[in-house]
């Protein structure tokens, strides 16, 4: 089923744009060039963060952190190996991508842990960054219950990512 989605999305968007008399191929090229500019601007962050994440792993600190948190993680059925990802996900998007990639490399992209990391990355956002952008622009000082509610949503995401992966692939 899902194998149809990505190819058909490509066809539908090109066809719809063409029907609107847009130069669809040219639009794609311009959009793609914009995307590459964005990528270039985040490459330094990805390099610095992968250095940091590799240091955490090589020093044994990553194992130590997941060991420390493993009782709590195991209680909710979340693999303790994803502890670092869970901790960094709400704070920084590039750091989460770096940690997630590292986990997928270490355990394999098709392993349960690797898949859990992938689903976590795909279904959550950089919570604190989003909150600061929106409330900053709207001139809001009292955010009331937004942060606890958003962090709860993140927790549900981590929990459900572990649960769905376990159900689908074991």
């Amino acid at each position: 089923m899902y194998n149809y989605i990505v190819p058909s999305l490509l066809l539908i968007s090109s066809a719809l744009a063409l029907r609107k008399k847009e130069n669809s191929y040219q639009l794609m090229l311009h959009g793609g060039a914009e995307g590459l500019k964005i990528l270039v601007s985040i490459i330094p962050a990805l390099v610095m963060l992968l250095v940091a994440v590799t240091m955490l792993q090589a020093s044994g600190a990553a194992d130590w952190i997941s060991h420390l948190l493993s009782p709590m993680f195991s209680f909710f059925g979340i693999p303790p190996e994803t502890a670092l990802l869970v901790l960094i996900r709400p704070l920084s998007g590039s750091a989460a991508l770096a940690v997630g990639t590292q986990i997928m490399t270490q355990y394999g992209p098709d392993s349960l842990i690797g898949r859990t990391a992938a689903v976590m990355l795909g279904s959550t956002e950089t919570t604190f960054y989003t909150i600061s952008i929106y409330f900053g622009a709207a001139g809001i000082q009292k955010t009331r219950y937004t942060i606890p509610a958003a962090l709860f949503a993140d927790f549900v995401g981590f929990f459900m990512a572990s649960l769905t992966v376990r159900l689908f692939w074991t």
């Binding site: 968007s13 669809s24 060039a33 964005i38």
Partner: peptide, 22 residues
């Protein structure tokens, strides 16, 4: 990692521009 993302980012921002205009 940046290189392995490059193709996908280029493709999807291109398709994104299409979806937007369409």
């Amino acid at each position: 990692l940046s290189l392995s993302l490059a193709g996908s980012i280029c493709l999807w921002t291109g398709v994104g521009a299409l979806m937007d205009k369409a």
